[in-house]
Amino acid sequence: MTDLTKGPGSPEPLPAVDGAPAASHMLDVDDIEVRYGAIRALKGVSFHVDQGEIVALLGANGAGKTTTQKTVSGMMRPSLGSITYEGQRIDGIPAHSLINLGICHVPEGRHVFPRMTVDENLEMGAFRFKRQDMDVRAHVLDLFPRLQERIKQQAGTLSGGEQQMLAIGRALMGKPRLLLLDEPSMGLAPLIVAQIFDIIRQVNADGVTVLLVEQNAAQALALANRGYVLETGEIVMSGAGKDLLADDRIRAAYLGEEIAAS
C-alpha cells in the first residue's frame, strides 16, 4: 500500500508519545483567542496533536469547535496565542498556503465542486502538484470504491455520504501529513458514518495524523487516541479517548444518558 505521508522532504513518522515536551508535538496550539467582533469565540484554547495520532475535538453547538478548526486551517486568525506546526508558526498563514506544508483540511458541510466530475474533483485536490500522483489516486480509489464506481459522475449528483467520501479523498490527493476533518459525520446515516470513521482509521494507519472535530462523541472518542472537550470557547476536559468515553460527565452531556440513577 502506498505511504501517503511521503511528501517531499517529510520526516519519518515519529511514534506518538503522550505528554512529550512541546517541541516534539506535530501541532501545538497555544492559548489562542479568536474574536468575532466583540464576541470572544475562543478564550484561550490550548491543545496539541502528535505525529501519527487521531485527536478529537468535541463540543456542543456553539462551543467553538469549528472556530478552532478554521483557525488552525488558516481561514481565521487568532487575536492572541500561537499555532505551531513542526516548529513553525502557522497562525496567519492563509488557508491555501497551508497545504504546501502538508496540512490538508476538509471543511464542514461537504464542500465538493458540484459541477465537476468525481475525477475532476480528485484532480483539483492535487492542484498543488504540477500533475497528480497516479499512485495516490489509485490508493484513494482503493479506500473509496464507491468513488471509482462514480468516477465520471458529477459530484453534485452524489449522495451525502459519497460527497463526504469525495471531500476526504480529494484532501488525500494533496498528500497531507496532517488532515483536519470538520464534522465528517454531519447529516449522514449511522451506517455511512461508521464507514467513514473506518476509513479515517485506515488513513491514520497509513501514517496521516488526523485532527477530528466532531459532535458525534461516542464514535469520535472510540476512534481517537486523545480527545479534548470544548465548552463556550474553553477546553474543559481532555484525556485519552477511552477515558473520556467512560467519563460520566461526557456521557451525560454528549451521549444523553441518564446519570440520575448514580
Partner: peptide
C-alpha cells in the same frame, strides 16, 4: 489550463478551492 481549472474551482466552491491550495 491550470488557471482555467482554478477559476472553475473558485466559481464552484471557494472554501473547497482554498482547501485545495488555490489562492482565490
Amino acid at each position: 489550463s491550470r488557471t482555467g481549472r482554478a477559476w472553475a474551482a473558485i466559481r464552484e466552491d471557494e472554501v473547497a478551492a482554498q482547501a485545495a491550495g488555490i489562492n482565490p
